[in-house]
Design a protein around this nucleic acid. Structure first.
Lengths: 222, 222
DNA sequence: TTCTTCATGTAATTAGTTACATGATTGA
DNA sequence: TCAATCATGTAACTAATTACATGAAGAA
């Protein structure tokens, strides 16, 4: 019997809220869950079957006209498994950022192309922010199937909102910097003040307490 | 002949900087590239072969004792292909965040477990920040194989540094919020002030100009 | 000498994606 | 009544991961 993955538990978590059809689950993945654990729609139709095979979910066949659809609900065993999973340590954030990859290698490209990439990044951030805004105002009106879970949503939506803002702010800032580049990005030079500021922020975030993560090189002063 | 993926171009980009052995590439993936395009080491040994098959890279066999190793370098065709790829639109950031998933479903878990997850998140952020700090101070001393590319590194390292700071700040804030929860997270209630603040930030980031992404529901006022 | 870590891959497996198919519903 | 979109999946494919294997170099 196939082992459960994080994706399985993500679905199981949704089922813990209430029963859903596969389509409902896919919607959630598209709108909320997918922002922290994105998976293709087809996966959403497969995973619940694994949960049923493990006795963690129950499937009820319904019909709409000549078609059938499946309504999934969590079982007692499923609730226990979910609670156990929540107590295991999870992985930190993993970021994939193709546009930044293009900025990273922009010395092989053009200034115009780089600016175009950054413009797209900014638009992406604005769109996601607008989405966050809509979701957030929805919360304020106690809409959606998550009324009882506002305490959780309050936490995750704050992170996502700030993340989108960060992406947007960065793209804006980077655009200003690249605007000052010469025509050929390969000949652009860095502004030491920017690097110093980045170092300052990193030092701040690394935390003064004990500084246990200090690289042991450069022993004699900073 | 297998089509090239973003991962292929990531490797190609590295080769545009200078020739590397597979091991060198794996190191870069581990330290720098992997922060924006993370892939398993074995992939790094496979992808360059595809590039060679496409005539975009050249492999030179060297030997170390009885073993052989491969040194890859970019070809002229490879440089053209890289430039062409840079001009195509790229994808926005994709985030996978298992720990936040656990926070999202924490109403099925325990307060203690949630706090433990957040503590891990915070440690993760501090470690990454310390790494950023080390990398940044290295830049200030013009170290590393990237001397000529500081203008690019200045941009990407700023984003990563800020991202790690965001993760750390969020975990700290969320810890404070969860600390005020009752013993059972399912009975925790949200603080409307927090949600309002999140909405405020989202509105700010969504940008006032024209507000084209406005949801058309709620027509009568905000 | 032996053990451990560094270095250099290949093989097996799988999680995930893209593509396809088709019935139901709605609106023009 | 026709087209478009919503709803509900399955099948084929592949990108990526984990596991394995082994030589070289350095430490104990």
């Amino acid at each position: 019997m196939a082992a459960l993955t994080t994706t399985s538990y993500a679905i199981l978590g949704l089922l813990s809220v209430k029963p859903w059809t596969s389509y409902d689950l896919a919607q959630q993945m598209d709108r909320s869950l997918g922002r922290m654990w994105p998976r293709a729609t087809s996966k959403i139709y497969e995973e619940p079957k694994k949960l049923v095979a493990h006795g963690m979910a129950h499937a009820r066949e319904e019909s709409v006209g000549r078609r059938k659809r499946t309504l999934y609900s969590i079982t007692a065993k499923g609730r226990r498994a979910l609670a156990a999973w929540l107590d295991e340590p999870g992985e930190g954030p993993v970021l994939e950022f193709e546009q930044m990859l293009k900025v990273f290698f922009s010395d092989s490209g053009t200034k115009t192309g780089t600016l175009a990439t950054l413009a797209r990044t900014r638009r992406w951030a604005e769109e996601r922010s607008a989405e966050s805004l809509a979701v957030g105002t929805g919360y304020l009106q106690e809409e959606g199937p998550f009324g009882e879970r506002l305490a959780q949503l309050e936490l995750t939506s704050r992170f996502l909102t700030d993340f989108y803002a960060l992406v947007g702010d960065w793209a804006t800032w980077a655009t200003e910097v690249v605007d000052r580049w010469p025509r050929d990005p390969a000949t652009a030079v860095a502004d030491p003040a920017n690097i110093r500021e980045t170092v300052r922020r990193a030092r701040q975030a690394a935390g003064g307490s004990g500084s246990p993560n200090r690289i042991h090189g450069t022993p004699g002063g900073d």
